[in-house]
Design a protein around this nucleic acid. Structure first.
Length: 803
RNA sequence: GCCGGAGUGGCGGAAUAGGUAGACGCCCGGGACUUAAAAUCCCGUGAGAUUAAUUUCUCGUACCGGUUCGAUUCCGGUCUCCGGCACCA
């Protein structure tokens, strides 16, 4: 066999694996287990492009190797099917979202199967399946019962023309994506999940997890824990107080003005005292049109209005200071009000310069005539009453104690993390299983009534009241209150797409169980997930949301392990061949995997996906790269023509041991590209050598199997493999055979390479130096010079410093 | 703007507890085979000088500076690109 005849081979082995259920995770819970997880796809209107298979193939390689190493592997797949894009697609194409989803799932599934992934399809889940979302709703009810789901007034994007709520994504430059009309902020009561109650746990849990560093740091920054103090400023000629949060209570003496968010309720409370209320009100209107993001983006040009007729009083020195409203202060963080210390905060400094407000130095160490001094490590307090002379850290403790002792404030911890808005005014999502009773308030439906099935309606288009399309189905909406039996209504908002994906890894443990989310036994065995790979873009939302749910389900006794994922890695994106992100707006750069597989075969495609670059970095797609991978596989097939002799090993033995070692460790470290390069190098060495033994060929296809399983199975079967190669043992290597007797080391003179010498491995320093100095090329550079220093790094280099 | 990453030949990338920069592959050029082409095989391939030579030298890992015998790797600063910014999932 001198060619990879993929048309004959690929389907043959895919059918074989399916026939014998080769990749079915076993329910024998005495076996050592390994749970590999990839983010399940969102089956949108577009078919898969060449970017999707990269993480799938990577984790398939990991799963296949673990299986060969004797683990009972769970490598499942499913569909994250609810959500806005499918609904919009359905409205546009005039197909029901459930039909659109069904079609897309079919397409995706056949594509995934053509890649030869070793998935256990018997555990497939679909978040829009009532048997699945029954448990999504059940979890919501538990969150509600434990006080972690509550309703709150929230601002939403409102299109003035479409008369509907828009997702942030649908707002482009303050205009509606569909009609281009103005978008304003409106208030609506929304279901929220109290993820902030888990902020500290989400932070603490990270510590012992094997998450890649950038995921950890981004999560930590997103949660944004900061220690500080809340402190009351009284309002002159009023009994009202303005409570602020600051991380720098030590700088209280430097507060020269205050700033409150435009939405702050105290504005209306003080209406009678405010002289320029009209001006304030129009600023509020303008701010209402901007999102938080737009507000902080315009940070360079700070805007604001002084609230005239009202002064605040600094509690530590009784100074009267002005109050401004400005949109750089967000109502959603802290208390929605700050004391401004322009000498020691960059944003306050800019604002003070613009509005010509006094800047007082209270921490020595910088030059506040030029910029704010924000260092908290080195400063000494000045102009600060009893704090003078203290270091910042000590001053913080002392002032916090002072505030508490005098009932002026309290030391506190705040998080940037905000609660999770858990409602959408949309059709295509899980109905929220709550009944709103005029007498009893919010009442969860009885768990025996789950799933609360999403009504199958003709019209799921948006309403012009801003309510969910479900609100139109009166016979579904109108119900009796489960508590008092009186007339009541169902909640008509649905859950966001994040809901189903927040616990799917639990369902995989026991996907088909009608009575439980999953049995305790299955959860105890499979959880936690051993290795979860996914996109960086999911770090701050999905990853955090799902950890929150898992921690909660642990707290109420559903799962035994607190943290759901032991290890988290992240792949880089595949870009278009033009080096830019693949996007439906540039269809000429979308490459369909089907075309690649038809032309080069599944194994070439898998190999190319993994060889194209560092798995963790994004990289442009290259159809040319497919050719190189196909050539490699053709040459692997060609080995069958030069394989001779049984049992005996050849001079290639050490090279085999080295390659096994490298491929084994590279897979564990996600360095798939160098693992493939190592196998290519070995292949070149075999051809240079001219032949290999049959056993060596069997070893070669065994380590190639996770990467190119079809061709490996085929060759394996040619050489008497009775059971599937995919279920055969991963080869061991002999460490002593991975080390060469001789080693080439570099010889530098004054740090410049002047020669290379071959010496025995682990040579002594004297030996190496003598060998280096007697090298003809090196001699020229050290003759007639005095040697100042000699450096020897064993097995690496010699550096001779001369004068 | 804020948070997190990245920048190495014509291209994708390799090599970092600081130690021979460019593994492996693509493209390209030359040759073999062929009536011819494709496929395949062999050779070459960072840039610039230099040599009879496949010789020798210099430069070179986004940019500027620093530490070091030695920096792609560490430190300080700058630029550019990518991901996220909470109702896309």
């Amino acid at each position: 066999m001198n060619r990879y005849d993929f048309k004959a081979i690929d389907k043959k082995w895919q059918d074989k694996w399916e026939e014998v259920e080769a990749f079915k995770a076993l329910t024998d819970y005495s076996l050592p287990k390994y749970y590999t997880l990839i983010e399940f796809p969102y089956p949108s209107g577009q078919s898969l492009h060449v970017g999707h298979p990269r993480p799938y193939t990577a984790m398939d390689i990991v799963s296949r190797k673990k299986r060969m190493q004797g683990y009972n592997v769970l490598f499942p797949m499913g569909w994250d099917a609810f959500g806005l894009p499918t609904e919009n697609y359905a409205i546009k194409k005039k197909i029901h979202p459930s039909v659109a989803t069904k079609n897309n799932v079919e397409t995706y599934k056949s594509q995934l199967k053509s890649f030869g992934l070793s998935l256990d399809w018997s555990r497939e889940v679909n978040t829009c399946d009532p048997d699945y979302y029954k448990w999504t709703q059940w979890i919501f009810i538990q969150l509600f019962k434990y006080g972690l789901a509550y309703k709150k007034e929230m601002s939403v994007n409102w299109c003035t023309s479409c008369k509907c709520v828009l997702a942030n994504e649908e707002v482009i430059d303050g205009e509606c994506e569909r009609c281009g009309s103005e978008v304003v902020q409106r208030y609506k009561s929304q279901w929220m999940l109290k993820i902030t109650a888990y902020a500290q746990k989400l932070l603490d849990g990270l510590e012992n997890l094997d998450f890649i560093e950038r995921v950890k740091t981004q999560t930590i920054n997103w949660i944004g824990r900061s220690e500080g103090a809340e402190c009351d400023f009284s309002i002159k000629d009023s009994d009202k107080k303005l409570r602020i949060f600051t991380t720098r209570p030590d700088t209280l003496w430097g507060a020269t003005y205050m700033v409150i968010a435009p939405e702050h309720p105290i504005i209306n409370e003080l209406k009678g005292n405010i002289i320029n209320f009209d001006e304030i009100d129009s600023y509020r209107d303008a701010a209402a049109k901007k999102s938080d993001f737009e507000r902080s983006e315009l940070v360079k040009d700070k805007t604001g209005v002084e609230i005239k007729g009202v002064k605040a009083v600094n509690p530590v020195n009784n100074e009267e200071i002005p109050i401004f409203i400005s949109d750089y202060v967000l109502i959603s963080y802290g208390t929605g009000a700050i004391m401004a210390v322009p000498g020691h905060d960059t944003r306050d400094y800019e604002f003070a310069k613009k509005f010509d407000l006094p800047i007082i130095e209270v921490v020595k160490g910088g030059d506040i005539s030029k910029e704010a001094f924000t260092d908290t490590e080195t400063g000494i307090m000045v102009n600060s009453g009893f704090l003078n002379g203290l270091e910042v850290a000590d001053a913080k403790k002392k002032i916090t104690q002072f505030l508490e002792d005098n009932n002026l404030g309290v030391g506190t911890i705040k998080y940037k993390l905000r609660d999770w808005v858990f409602a959408r005014q949309r059709y295509w999502g899980e109905p929220v299983p709550i009944i709103i009773c005029p007498d009893c308030g919010f009442v969860a439906i009885d768990e025996s009534e789950l799933p609360l099935v999403l009504p199958n309606v003709e019209s799921y288009e948006l309403t012009d009241t801003g309510e969910s399309p479900l609100s139109r189905i009166t016979d579904w909406v109108n119900v009796k209150c489960p508590k008092c039996g009186g007339d009541a209504k169902r909640e008509t908002d649905t859950m966001p797409g994040w809901a189903g994906s927040s616990w799917y890894f639990l369902r995989y443990c026991d996907s088909n169980n009608p009575d439980y989310l999953a049995t305790k036994e299955a959860l105890d065995y499979w959880m936690p997930v051993d290795w979860y790979n996914g996109g960086m873009e999911h770090t701050t939302l999905h990853l955090l949301y799902s950890r929150f749910w898992a921690l909660f389900l642990h707290d109420i006794g559903v799962v035994s392990c607190p943290e759901p994922y032991l290890k988290r890695t992240s792949h880089g994106m595949i870009l278009g061949e033009d080096g830019k992100k693949i996007s439906k707006s540039r269809p000429e750069f979308i490459v369909n995997p089907d075309d690649m597989i038809n032309e080069y075969g599944a194994d070439s495609f898998r190999l190319c996906e993994m060889f194209i670059g560092d798995f963790e970095k994004s990289t442009p797609w290259s159809t040319n790269g497919m050719k190189g991978c196909k050539r490699f596989l053709d040459k692997v097939c060609g080995l069958t023509e030069i394989a001779k002799g049984k049992g005996a090993t050849s001079e290639l033995e050490n090279k085999f041991h080295k390659t096994i070692k490298k491929v084994t460790s590279d897979i564990d470290e996600m360095k798939f590209n160098t693992a493939i390069a190592a196998m290519m190098t070995l292949l070149n060495d075999i051809y240079d050598h001219g032949s290999l033994t049959v056993d060596e060929l069997r070893t070669f296809v065994t380590i190639l199997c996770p990467f190119a399983p079809h061709i490996s199975e085929e060759i394996w079967s040619m050489y008497g493999g009775t059971k599937l190669l995919s279920l055969t043992e991963w080869p061991a290597y002999d460490e002593s055979k991975t080390i060469d007797a001789m080693v080439n080391i570099a010889v530098q003179v004054n740090g410049k390479l002047r020669g290379v010498i071959e010496i025995p491995v682990d040579s002594a320093q004297d030996f190496a130096l003598n060998a280096a100095k007697s090298d003809e090329k090196v001699k020229v550079f050290i003759e007639d010079k005095s040697i100042v220093k000699e450096i020897y790094v064993p097995n690496k280099l010699v550096n001779i410093v001369v004068k």
